[in-house]
Nucleic acid binder design. Structure first.
Lengths: 154, 154
DNA sequence: ACGCTGAGTCTCGTTGACAGACCCAGATCG
DNA sequence: CGATCTGGGTCTGTCAACGAGACTCAGCGT
């Protein structure tokens, strides 16, 4: 019972995602809203915060900053797109959105639904084990020490 | 193209989960670490912060506080257990842990693995649509206005 | 009576969130 | 030409949250 469940990866991940707006920014970007001002208007994030968030997401290699030439001519601008590392966060995003829609949506329902492009049905996160069993309660999941576990003395 | 993808539920959810330690606390509690000092020692969360987190999670009805009588006699203490609303966050937790283990683990590997209680295989989050199609890239997911969508003027 | 333990609270310096004003380059208008 | 608009920022100041460390307090064991 005394291996260290140490906050390791979850703690580190939350040091990134845990900043109030990070996940919201990712949501916009996944949704195709990729330009500074568009993101800002859609989400209501304060300029400075958005600026910081974008910069640190780029630095973490979760987004990348790409120059583009606006349709209507004009100066070169930048847009933000997810990297592979960033795309892998969509599982987190879907899980967060689902929980939020279940417990925190306005009475009318959620403002956006995520649907499967091919069939139009709503998407949901589920948990499976490597043997393909569907797991629908946390009771069926147990933690156990992994390769990086360190012994733990209370 | 101009419905408001407004940060609504994701934003609200992240107002809770986005506090640096919330998810770490949940991880401990799901893992069976339920007592103040055990959580603190395992995770290294500062006392005051843990105190705040636990209080607000109880207030949000994500954890509940239950009195218990320690084995070795002594005064009545409290432990923290997830409510149904809290249990539903395990999808988020699994997704966060998976991403963290993939991208942020120490070279030796993650310190804890989550496995299926019945078969011992590792668990993974996946996304499916209501029609049962497996979705493994965010490209196959599109957002569209849901019941609570509001028209949006830039 | 003395110290230990679990579960906190108090204090204080540091960092992050957020609002509001300001800046700058190129396009467009009069 | 100068004035103004637009996208994408930066500067400044306030207020809340974080995090370290010391202090508290009740009951138990010795």
């Amino acid at each position: 019972m005394a291996w260290s469940t140490d906050n390791c990866t979850v703690g580190r991940t939350m040091a990134i995602l845990g900043e109030r707006w990070t996940v919201v920014v990712l949501r916009e970007v996944f949704n195709g809203v990729r330009r500074f001002d568009d993101i800002r208007r859609h989400s209501g994030i304060p300029r400075q915060v958005l600026s910081n968030r974008l910069a640190s997401l780029v630095e973490q290699d979760i987004l990348r900053r790409e120059p583009y030439r606006p349709e209507s001519g004009g100066r070169t601008r930048h847009e933000y797109r997810p990297t592979a590392k960033g795309l892998d966060l969509y599982l987190v995003l879907v899980a967060v959105a689902e929980w939020g829609d279940t417990y925190l949506a306005d009475p009318e329902g959620p403002p956006v639904e995520f649907v499967h492009r091919d069939c139009g049905e709503q998407v949901h996160p589920v948990v499976e084990c490597a043997a393909g069993h569907r797991i629908d309660t946390p009771r069926d999941v147990v933690g156990r020490p992994g390769p990086g576990a360190k012994p733990f003395e209370g």
